[in-house]
């Protein structure tokens, strides 16, 4: 157990090595949040938005919470795994008496601790201070947070699946970019999924992206029936299990395919 705690600690330290990068990221997140807020306010003000299910307050709430939550859910495991497989440095992790995937998770948890302290808390304080509108549905906050945890797990496993494809492809950034675009749209990180046309929503049911942002953010921001909430959480658990199994399979098969690059 202690070795994993060490990895969490190392993850934290590594994240803080370049403080200017942390500051730059914090500012970019603040600007992004402000931009999102302005764009959606403007869209509603210009009256071009007429959607039966959505009003201005709901949408703004959704967007603000989604942006804040994204600071925690974000995951750079794809890049990390890719870089390790591509450079062959994965060799130095494989010789350890510790699971590679667990080590990645521990490092990622370390990152997340720092992200919570450096991005999440400041953003929440900032939003609280500048926006008067109530953001959360307080009756559902417990389940909402549970749902964010599940989303965090789904995001990690999804990133691991894509990252490990490097066993076959060596470089996965093209796929990563392709899925990245789909992900940003379908997950609901940019646009509330309730705005999607029917067909897109139907496709989305068969993809895990919705479970990463749309579900937790909806639970946090809009009042839902209890049964609906549990259904959504059920969907998340299902994706967690599916992705977990997929990771195990890809790992088993991919390990045999590993070619350690560069001597």
């Amino acid at each position: 157990m202690k070795k994993y705690v060490d990895h969490v600690r190392i993850g934290m330290k590594e994240y803080l090595v370049y403080p200017s990068a942390v500051w730059a990221k914090l500012f970019s997140k603040i600007i992004y949040l402000y931009l999102q807020f302005c764009i959606w306010s403007a869209l509603f003000a210009s009256n071009s938005m007429k959607h039966p299910d959505l009003n201005k307050a709901d949408t703004l709430r959704y967007i603000v919470v989604a942006t804040i939550v994204s600071t925690v859910i974000e995951c750079n495991v794809i890049e990390k795994v890719n870089a390790q497989i591509q450079s062959g440095n994965i060799a130095t992790e494989l010789i350890r008496p510790i699971g590679f995937k667990r080590m990645l998770l521990a490092r990622h948890l370390g990152d997340t601790v720092i992200k919570i302290l450096c991005y999440l808390v400041p953003l929440i304080v900032l939003v609280k201070a500048s926006v008067s509108l109530p953001l959360l549905c307080f009756g559902q906050i417990g389940l909402g947070i549970l749902s964010v945890f599940l989303a965090y797990g789904i995001q990690f496993l999804y990133s691991l699946v894509i990252g490990l494809l490097a066993f076959w492809l060596i470089v996965t950034w093209p796929i990563n970019m392709f899925f990245g675009a789909i992900y940003k749209l379908l997950s609901g990180a940019w646009i509330p999924v309730t705005m999607f046309p029917e067909t897109l929503n139907r496709i989305n049911i068969f993809l895990p992206f919705r479970a990463i942002y749309a579900i937790p953010v909806s639970i946090l921001t809009s009042s839902m029936k209890v049964i609906e909430i549990w259904q959504s959480i059920g969907v998340q658990v299902m994706w967690l299990v599916i992705l977990y199994i997929l990771v195990q399979i890809i790992w088993r098969v991919g390990r045999n395919k590993l070619v350690v690059q560069g001597g």
Binding site: D6, I10, E14, P97
Partner: peptide, 16 residues
């Protein structure tokens, strides 16, 4: 670990 003091890696191995 590339970016953090060598001693940290040693402590990690100590536990690992």
């Amino acid at each position: 670990c590339w970016d953090i003091p060598v001693i940290e890696s040693f402590r990690l191995f100590k536990d690992m």
